[in-house]
Write a protein that binds this DNA or RNA. Structure first.
Lengths: 236, 236
DNA sequence: TCACCCCCATTGTGATCACAAATTTGGCGC
DNA sequence: GCGCCAAATTTGTGATCACAATGGGGGTGA
């Protein structure tokens, strides 16, 4: 999956498909997806430094495609470059948290609403299956699996909206709170609150747009509540 | 130290408004700002091809910093890379237009509302001065000046919100409809509709948040109406 | 006249090197 | 020991080159 030799060159399949690194994908695209996935699943700690040569050695490629991927993630605000040109995973602040919460509530219910009329029963089943797997990840104590499942739950729905531009905005927002979800993971199992994912699935089956938007909003507020309490302290 | 030369470089060519290249800035940062400014002011036509070496020759630098700047603009959706790896200024579509309108109405009034309590009288005067210059640009038949002024009017206000993350989302949205504003420019002078910029300035002076949000919303709807009619046709 | 195909210029990708700024480290003087 | 300065390392930036894929242009054949 990693070519570190200058000689072996091949990219026979021009068709990009799948996350499989180096199968019709450019190197920087493959690197980008790996880093992005890692950020979304809590694989980086907030404040952690990211260096081009460090990632390059780790993934076994030259620094150049890393440079492309990191620059893209910086533009998406998934990473941050300080004035000293050091790259790091951005820390959370209270005001940034407030903005993320607002943006999510402003955009995600709309995406869900747009998606509803395009949701096939098959797609709903897929989302339901993802949610089942999500529950298993919680039981198994698998934070990364939980985060990936939660992401898939929301974005499998949102992608049906056929609103690529709004989807990109929301993806950027998720990248910005990804590293903090992990820190809130511990509270998930103990909660006896409503599972708004199931409420949302019911609303999908009922084709009830109002209820779906409500469930997504509630899920956002509950989830961000976990993160806000855990990361920023319940008061302060 | 800019570039030591393996070949003679010529004078920095057409930079319409003063973004001086190289004032403690990296080359790619300078290139990024020039390209960004050009996109926001209608300096590129939708569908126009953008090549690394083409821009590099035009700006008199090597392709490398161009590559960085273009990749950043692609991530911000100001430019688009097709599957064939060709880079171009994205064309508008009806569904993209709808998403842009929604995102603007969802985010910009909030930024204006957040900014209001931080607006000093001096800042209001500055915004008023920008609006005056905007009127002069219309009278003088200066599309670029109008677009730059319009951008400054909105973002001078929004920047006061101290909500950097929301500001970045909105900036990305503006970059996506920038190339189309120019095509709608011709209709501006002839209109006898309400000038919502002036309504907004009055609301700022009155410290009336509701009125300000309303004025921004109205301005968005009116302005995007121009663009939508012009670019997409009044029907279809 | 038109369709097809081959050749070549163009384009983005990735590797490697040189360089300057920032950081870290080591050691010297007090 | 402690603080401070200089050497060494690390890091992003920019240039240059090689390469493969794409696209355009021109020529050939029916």
């Amino acid at each position: 999956m990693k070519q570190q030799e200058p000689s072996p060159r091949k990219a026979p399949s021009p068709v990009p498909s799948g996350i499989a690194p180096g199968l019709g994908l450019t190197t920087h695209e493959s690197v980008y997806r790996q880093l992005r996935d890692r950020i979304l699943c809590g694989g980086f700690a907030p404040g952690e430094a990211v260096t081009l040569r460090g990632i390059a050695d780790e993934l076994g490629v030259s620094p150049m495609p890393i440079r492309d991927a990191v620059r893209r993630l910086i533009a998406e605000r998934a990473l941050e470059m300080r004035d000293n040109r050091r790259v790091l995973v951005p820390p959370m602040t209270r005001t940034k948290f407030t903005q993320i919460l607002f943006a999510r509530k402003a955009l995600e219910p709309e995406l869900a609403g747009l998606a509803l009329s395009r949701l096939t029963p098959k797609a709903i089943s897929k989302i339901e299956a993802i949610d089942d797997g999500l529950g298993r990840s919680v039981s198994a104590g698998d934070p990364q699996g939980y985060m990936r499942g939660n992401y898939q739950f929301h974005f499998t729905l949102y992608e049906r909206a056929a609103a690529e531009m709004l989807l990109a905005l929301v993806a950027s927002v998720w990248l910005q709170f990804g590293p903090f979800m992990r820190m809130a993971y511990g509270r998930l199992g103990t909660s006896d609150l409503t599972d708004f994912h199931e409420v949302a699935i019911s609303a999908m089956k009922d084709r009830n747009e109002t209820a779906l938007r409500r469930a997504i909003t509630d899920d956002i507020e509950q989830g961000m509540g976990y993160i806000g309490d855990t990361v920023l302290g319940r008061r302060q």
